[in-house]
Simulated assay, not measured.
Amino acid sequence: MAVENGTYIKLNYTGTINGVAFDTTDAEAAKNANIFRENFEYTPAIVKVGAGRLLKGLDEELAGKEIGQEYTITLPAEKAFGEHKAEEMKAVDKKAFDHKPELFERLTVEGREGVVVQKIGNRYIVDFNHPLAGQEVVYTFTIIEEVTDAAECLAGTIKLITGRDMKVGTKHENFVSVEVPTMIAMYNQNWFMTQYLIMQEALELFPNAESVKFVESFPRPKAVEEPAAEEKTE
């Protein structure tokens, strides 16, 4: 059966550049390419076909593909991470940095992430292109199955957007709950925009829900035990 735009699917994939994997749902492939993340669960991604949450070229290729069949596609740079653009190489005054940058250091400056590639006088040349810009990309993928459970679709979408597993609650008729990691806004600068995207997806998947509640729990700190007083001896 071929899948259509708007369908939620489970997708296994591995993306490579010059034969080396840079993105995968397979743990062994990640280990072999030295990109394995210890705290990440390698499982098929849940993806809404045509929603634009994957690389443009890969997303466009999914519609019309058969479930259970393996495909290999080659994406030109413009349908992957974009062409490497000279105008994205910027000269930045040293005063814009909060430390002395090292050559080839990846950092955030003036609100954008880039790589320092050269120093000229009091200025640093920073490459703001995507690290994989200009590269041809090869993807091998298999559509495992269609996903129809709304809670599973939402949880999968959240993981695809954030890289984290978050529990979705649907026991209440008038709202959907999402359990989020404690203090997530402190280490995810885009969390408020991410919340909005999750809310949109949830209300679309659960048309009878009136709201989406993000639940953040703060556990009680463990009491520090004081060392027992030593007995005095006469």
Rank of each mutant, 00 (worst) to 15 (best):
A2D: 09
T7D: 15
L11R: 03
Y13C: 08
Y13K: 09
I17T: 09
G19L: 05
D23A: 12
D26V: 10
D26A: 06
D26N: 15
A29S: 08
A29N: 08
A30Y: 01
K31Q: 07
F36D: 04
N39P: 06
F40W: 11
T43L: 13
I46Y: 09
V49Q: 02
G52I: 08
D59Y: 01
D59Q: 04
E61A: 05
E61T: 00
L62T: 02
E66P: 05
Q69R: 06
Y71W: 01
Y71F: 06
I73L: 03
T74L: 01
E78Q: 08
G82F: 04
K85L: 09
E88M: 15
K90P: 07
D93T: 02
K94I: 15
A96N: 01
K100R: 09
L103G: 06
F104N: 11
F104E: 09
E105N: 12
G111L: 08
G111P: 10
V115A: 11
G121A: 08
H130N: 12
P131H: 14
L132K: 11
A133H: 09
Q135S: 13
T140N: 03
T142A: 11
E146F: 10
E146V: 13
T148H: 13
A150K: 13
C153L: 08
K159D: 13
I161R: 15
I161F: 12
G163Y: 00
R164V: 01
N174Q: 07
S177M: 01
V178E: 02
V178C: 00
P181L: 03
T182M: 10
M183H: 12
M183W: 10
I184G: 04
A185F: 11
N190G: 15
T194P: 12
Q195N: 04
Y196Q: 14
I198M: 02
Q200V: 00
L205D: 02
F214G: 05
R220V: 10
P221H: 07
E225D: 09
E226S: 04
K232W: 02
T233D: 12
T233P: 02
